[in-house]
């Protein structure tokens, strides 16, 4: 009698668990493709802001490389490179870089660089800077980040790739210096990294698409 009651409990719970997880598994199967497509499109949208769709014809989403980087103080960790090609020719690369020099925590950026070495655009993906001060680096909050468009290593000269307070050409915002300084340095280092490697980067085989 006792054992039966224990066994019934166990069986009951077992059935529910199987039914529940079966339902979840079924839905997952049903939605998996759509979700993957959503993710792809979300990333593409932010990449397209930097490198417009009409400039390339390859699958920029899968044509990626992840390179270890060292020796660039403005960048920490590996850099992911999204490569844009048209008719097989390299057009531009989008570098996903991270800087640790922010006021609080890491700042993740997308830096798009044309093959001629000019900046096609910069966007902040993720940061934890002081709200109201450092968060002006976001495109939604101010246009400061657009100031990089068209710049290159010679324009301005390398030693002037800095905020104004440190003798450079880029504005800091009132009340905050550290955040813009970190972004400027990160963009500069992204340019420095990309410059000599622009051709070799496009020759490597892409990473296998990440399983999701």
């Amino acid at each position: 009698m006792r054992y039966r009651s224990i066994l019934i409990s166990a069986l009951f719970l077992f059935l529910f668990a199987v039914a529940g997880s079966g339902l979840v598994a079924f839905t997952y199967d049903l939605t998996a493709d759509r979700i993957a497509e959503n993710q792809r499109r979300a990333l593409l949208r932010s990449l397209n802001e930097l490198v417009p769709e009409e400039r390339y014809d390859n699958d920029i989403f899968t044509d990626t490389l992840t390179m270890p980087v060292s020796g660039f103080p403005g960048i920490t960790g590996p850099v992911t490179v999204y490569r844009a090609r048209k008719d097989g020719w390299p057009v531009a690369a989008v570098l996903a870089v991270t800087t640790a020099d922010g006021y609080s925590g890491n700042i993740r950026l997308l830096v798009a660089i044309n093959m001629d070495g000019t900046v096609a655009g910069v966007r902040v993906v993720d940061h934890r800077e002081t709200p109201g001060l450092g968060d002006a680096i976001e495109h939604g909050k101010s246009d400061w980040i657009l100031g990089f468009n068209g710049r290159s290593l010679g324009d301005p000269a390398l030693e002037q790739w800095d905020v104004k307070r440190d003798g450079g050409v880029f504005d800091q915002f009132t009340g905050a210096t550290i955040t813009p300084r970190a972004v400027v340095k990160a963009v500069r280092d992204a340019l420095l990294y990309f410059g000599p490697r622009r051709h070799s980067l496009f020759e490597k085989h892409p990473d296998p698409p990440a399983a999701s």
Binding site: T130, P131, G132, L133, T174, G175, A176
Partner: peptide, 10 residues
């Protein structure tokens, strides 16, 4: 300082 960080750091 949370709401008006700009004015509060000048």
């Amino acid at each position: 300082i949370i709401s008006f960080p700009l004015q509060m750091t000048l």
